[in-house]
């Protein structure tokens, strides 16, 4: 009996892990839709709007990929994943691509058998507290209670930060951003910590956003990027170069407004021509047609448009471009040449 239970457990785990590693592109085409692992609700990055349509910065990348591969930006099935379930879901083949504020780290890229194809948002971990606590630096947080999403790099950075600074804290583990927000607002924890973009997005949904302050310390590097399963390089290429296409489009001044016009015929800029498929055969090299990038840009706009529309300074979230500006403007965004 014991043996049976043991093997039964093995079986269930085995079935969950069973999925084909290769040929994601064929699967997506056969299905007619892209399964995109997304946040379960983070304003500005991935959340359903009043009509139930998913909107946000990460969502736009999923839509761009769907537009490039399937020709329809709406052909995306969003699968909300918690920080704990996301990598398992991707590895098990429940989603084709994971765009969920996930930090690119060595062990995730190697040991977890994932491939991070780039960074769509360069972030860092921060701390949010109430104004009236009178705290001005994270080093003054000795003895505080900290709400933290489990299964994140944030959790490890937090332990490191407090240990290195020789101060104590009490972790309150929460499963989702929504739960963390509720606990923080109820005062069950003094501090909420996650990536600064996530803090800004969460604060934007508060009734009295001005009563909360994000402390100046940035305690980690958090390059957030889309991830795919290890071992399917063709699919990884498609996701990587869709992201690069959006970044390059901003650099070359291609927007959702003028992309059709620029794609109508060869322009004087050969980089734009190769990107938009009016010159060369770049699309065929990643098993797509030549208009793949045109469709992606037309669907969601270039990187700058996506940023400003979802999380930019004109939105309630109000994030500055900072590290996420083009390399020509002092940021880190640098798309390799389309050649």
């Amino acid at each position: 009996m014991n043996k049976k239970v043991f093997l039964g457990a093995l079986t269930v785990a085995g079935l969950a892990a069973g999925a084909s590693a290769a040929a994601t592109l064929d699967d997506v085409k056969a299905r007619g839709s892209l399964k995109c692992g997304s946040n379960e609700g983070l304003a500005g990055f991935a959340a359903p709007d009043a009509n139930g349509v998913w909107q946000g910065f990460d969502v736009s990348l999923c839509r761009a990929i769907a537009a490039a591969v399937l020709g329809d930006a709406q052909a995306v099935e969003f699968v909300p994943l918690t920080s704990q379930t996301r990598f398992t879901a991707l590895a098990a083949g429940e989603v084709d691509v994971l765009v969920r504020n996930s930090t690119w780290t060595f062990s995730r890229d190697t040991d977890l058998k994932l491939d991070f194809v780039g960074a769509n948002y360069y972030d860092g971990q921060g701390f949010m507290v109430r104004n009236d606590l009178g705290v001005s630096s994270a080093k003054e947080l000795d003895g505080s209670t900290v709400c933290i999403q489990t299964g994140t790099t944030t959790e490890l950075n937090l332990a490191d930060f407090f240990r290195v600074n020789n101060i104590s804290y009490e972790p309150v583990p929460v499963a989702t951003n929504a739960e963390g927000q509720q606990q923080y607002l109820a005062g069950a924890c003094d501090v909420y910590t996650t990536d600064i973009s996530g803090l800004a997005a969460t604060r934007a949904t508060f009734e009295n956003a001005s009563e909360h302050v994000i402390l100046p310390e940035v305690v980690s590097k958090e390059p957030l990027g889309p991830a795919v399963r290890h071992g399917d390089s063709e699919w990884a290429d498609i996701v990587r170069w869709t992201l690069n296409a959006l970044i390059a489009a901003e650099e070359y001044g291609v927007t959702s407004a003028n992309v059709m016009e620029l794609a109508a015929g060869p322009t004087t800029n050969p980089e734009i021509n190769r990107l938009l498929g009016t010159e060369g055969e770049l699309g065929a090299m990643i098993a797509l047609d030549k208009d793949w990038a045109v469709r992606a840009i037309a669907a969601v706009g270039n990187y700058g448009e996506v940023f400003e529309r979802n999380i930019g300074e004109a939105t309630p979230i109000g994030l500055a471009r900072g590290l996420n500006a083009q390399w020509t403007e002092g940021g880190l965004l640098y798309a390799p040449p389309f050649r």
Partner: peptide, 23 residues
């Protein structure tokens, strides 16, 4: 069964150990 599995990516091993513990 939660944080360790998530940080190490060892779902099968973790769940097996968890099953054995409860058994």
């Amino acid at each position: 069964g939660g944080i360790t599995i998530n940080q190490t990516g060892r779902e099968l091993e973790g769940m097996l150990l968890l099953g054995i513990f409860y058994l």
